Simulated scan of single mutants.
Amino acid sequence: MSQSPGFFLTIIAFALVLGPLVFLHELGHYLAGRLFGVKAEAFSIGFGREIAGFTDRRGTRWKFGWLPLGGYVRFAGDMNPASQPTPEWLALPADERARTFQAKSLWQRAIIVAAGPFTNFLIAIVILATFAGVYGVDRTPPVVGAVMEGSAAAKAGLEPGDRITAIGGRHVSTYKDLAQYTVMRPGERVSLDIVRNGSPRAMEVTLDVHREVDRFGNEYRMGRLGVANGSPVLEKVGALGAIGAGASQTVDVIRGTLDGLGQMITGRRSIDELGGPVRIADMAGEQLTLGWQPLIFFIAMISINLGFINLLPVPVLDGGHLLFYAVEAVRRRPVGPEAMEWAFRGGLAAILALFLIVTFNDLDAFGLWHGLAGLIG
C-alpha cells in the first residue's frame, strides 16, 4: 500500500523547499545590484497582490505576494528589457539615473542577471559538499562484482572482474558514473568499453528497462545494465575535497538534466515526465516524510534545476537576458526595442505553454483525468 505525506505536510515541505530557494535566487540578483550601486525598488517573494511587507531605509519595498510560485527584484530604471534610454529614464535627475540598472555597463548588467542562477548552483554545491564532508565520497571503482542472470550485461557477455572504462563514449571512473548514465537510458543500445585481464575490449549492449515503484506509489522507468559492484569504497575528504565533490555532483546533475532534455527533444523520453509546482510539492512532502536529510538533498536538486532553467536562452528568463547581452556585445549596440518586444512575447508564450503542459502532467499524475473519465463514463 502506497503512503501519502498528507496535504498539510506537503504544503509545509513545499514552502521549506521553494521559499528559501526563491529568496536566495533573488538575493543573488539584489546583492550583485547593490555591489554595482543599483537601487532596488522592490524585492518580492511571490507574485500578485502584496499581503505583507515593509520598506527599508534604502527605499526598497520587501514584500510577500499572494501567489507563492516565484519572486522578483525590480531595479530602478529596469523599464524595458532592451535597457535602452526611454523618455522616462532621461527625465530622471543625473544622480538618480546613475543608480539605475540601465546606467550600468554591459558586463555589470550581465553579472547582476547571472547572479541569481549562480546563487542556486552555489547553494547546491554547499549542501552536497556538506554531505561529502560528513559521509565521505563514493569512489567505488566500476568493476563488475556480479552479473544478473538474463540481464543486458549477461547477454552482452560481461563477466565478474571486468572493469568498465566507458559507456556510450563517456568516460567512467566510478560505479556511480555508470549508474547515472544507464538509469537515464532505458531500452537504448549503447557502446561499452571494458578491460578484461589487462586487455581492452569493446562491445554493444541494449540496456534493460526496469520499472520500480517506491513506497509512495510513484513508478519510475529506468535503464539497467544488470551488474553489481564489488567492494564499495567510501573516501573521507577534507574541506577542499568536499567542495570539489559538491561541485562535481552539481555538474553531474546538470549533465543529467541536459541528457533528459535532449531525449525529450528527440522523442526518446516522453514529456509526460515533466513536472511542475504541484509535483514538486508532492515530492517535497514525500522527502520530508523520509527525514530531513532526504529533504535537504532534494532542495539541492531543485536548486540546481532552478538555476539551470533560469539560464535557458528563453526571453523573460535570466538566460534570455544574457543572450541579448551577448548579441549586444557582438553588435556593439542593443537589440532594437521592437525585436526585443516580440522576442519577449514569444518567450512568455513558451513559458505559459510549458506551464500548462506541466500542470496537465501534474494533475494526470494525481489521477484527476482518470477520475473525470470514470465520472463521465
Score class of each variant (00 low, 15 high):
residue 119 T to I: 12
residue 96 E to Q: 13
residue 121 F to A: 03
residue 111 I to V: 15
residue 104 K to P: 11
residue 106 L to T: 13
residue 107 W to M: 09
residue 98 A to K: 10
residue 112 I to R: 09
residue 111 I to L: 15
residue 111 I to N: 04
residue 118 F to R: 03
residue 108 Q to E: 14
residue 121 F to I: 01
residue 102 Q to A: 15
residue 102 Q to D: 07
residue 117 P to I: 10
residue 115 A to D: 12
residue 116 G to R: 08
residue 96 E to L: 01
residue 121 F to K: 01
residue 116 G to L: 06
residue 122 L to I: 13
residue 111 I to F: 15
residue 122 L to D: 00
residue 93 P to K: 04
residue 99 R to S: 05
residue 117 P to A: 12
residue 123 I to M: 14
residue 98 A to C: 00
residue 112 I to G: 10
residue 111 I to T: 13
residue 119 T to A: 15
residue 101 F to I: 07
residue 110 A to P: 09
residue 117 P to R: 11
residue 125 I to W: 09
residue 111 I to C: 09
residue 113 V to R: 02
residue 105 S to N: 07
residue 125 I to Q: 08
residue 105 S to C: 00
residue 101 F to Y: 15
residue 97 R to T: 02
residue 102 Q to W: 03
residue 125 I to C: 10
residue 123 I to P: 11
residue 115 A to L: 08
residue 117 P to N: 12
residue 101 F to E: 11
residue 113 V to M: 12
residue 119 T to D: 03
residue 108 Q to N: 05
residue 102 Q to Y: 09
residue 113 V to H: 05
residue 112 I to P: 12
residue 113 V to K: 03
residue 103 A to V: 02
residue 98 A to M: 05
residue 92 L to W: 04
residue 94 A to K: 14
residue 100 T to L: 06
residue 98 A to N: 08
residue 110 A to C: 01
residue 92 L to A: 04
residue 95 D to N: 11
residue 115 A to V: 10
residue 102 Q to H: 13
residue 95 D to A: 14
residue 125 I to Y: 11
residue 100 T to Y: 04
residue 118 F to D: 00
residue 97 R to D: 08
residue 118 F to W: 13
residue 124 A to N: 08
residue 104 K to V: 08
residue 124 A to D: 08
residue 94 A to Q: 15
residue 92 L to H: 03
residue 107 W to S: 14
residue 93 P to A: 09
residue 126 V to N: 02
residue 105 S to R: 15
residue 107 W to P: 00
residue 106 L to R: 14
residue 106 L to V: 13
residue 93 P to R: 01
residue 92 L to C: 01
residue 114 A to P: 08
residue 120 N to E: 12
residue 97 R to N: 07
residue 120 N to Q: 12
residue 115 A to N: 13
residue 123 I to H: 11
residue 126 V to P: 05
residue 126 V to R: 01
residue 98 A to D: 13
residue 118 F to G: 14
residue 121 F to D: 02
residue 99 R to E: 06
residue 117 P to K: 08
residue 113 V to G: 06
residue 103 A to F: 02
residue 123 I to L: 15
residue 114 A to K: 04
residue 126 V to T: 06
residue 110 A to W: 09
residue 116 G to C: 07
residue 102 Q to M: 14
residue 99 R to Y: 00
residue 109 R to E: 12
residue 118 F to H: 01
residue 104 K to E: 05
residue 101 F to A: 06
residue 121 F to L: 09
residue 94 A to S: 14
residue 122 L to V: 14
residue 112 I to W: 05
residue 95 D to W: 02
residue 119 T to N: 11
residue 114 A to S: 13
residue 92 L to S: 05
residue 112 I to C: 07
residue 98 A to L: 02
residue 97 R to W: 03
residue 119 T to H: 01
residue 100 T to V: 04
residue 114 A to H: 06
residue 92 L to V: 03
residue 117 P to Y: 09
residue 97 R to C: 01
residue 116 G to K: 03
residue 94 A to I: 07
residue 110 A to D: 11
residue 108 Q to P: 04
residue 113 V to A: 14
residue 100 T to E: 10
residue 93 P to I: 06
residue 117 P to T: 09
residue 99 R to I: 00
residue 112 I to D: 11
residue 103 A to T: 02
residue 111 I to Q: 02
residue 120 N to M: 07
residue 100 T to F: 03
residue 107 W to T: 10
residue 109 R to P: 11
residue 95 D to G: 01
residue 93 P to W: 04
residue 107 W to H: 12
residue 121 F to N: 01
residue 96 E to F: 00
residue 105 S to D: 05
residue 109 R to G: 07
residue 126 V to C: 14
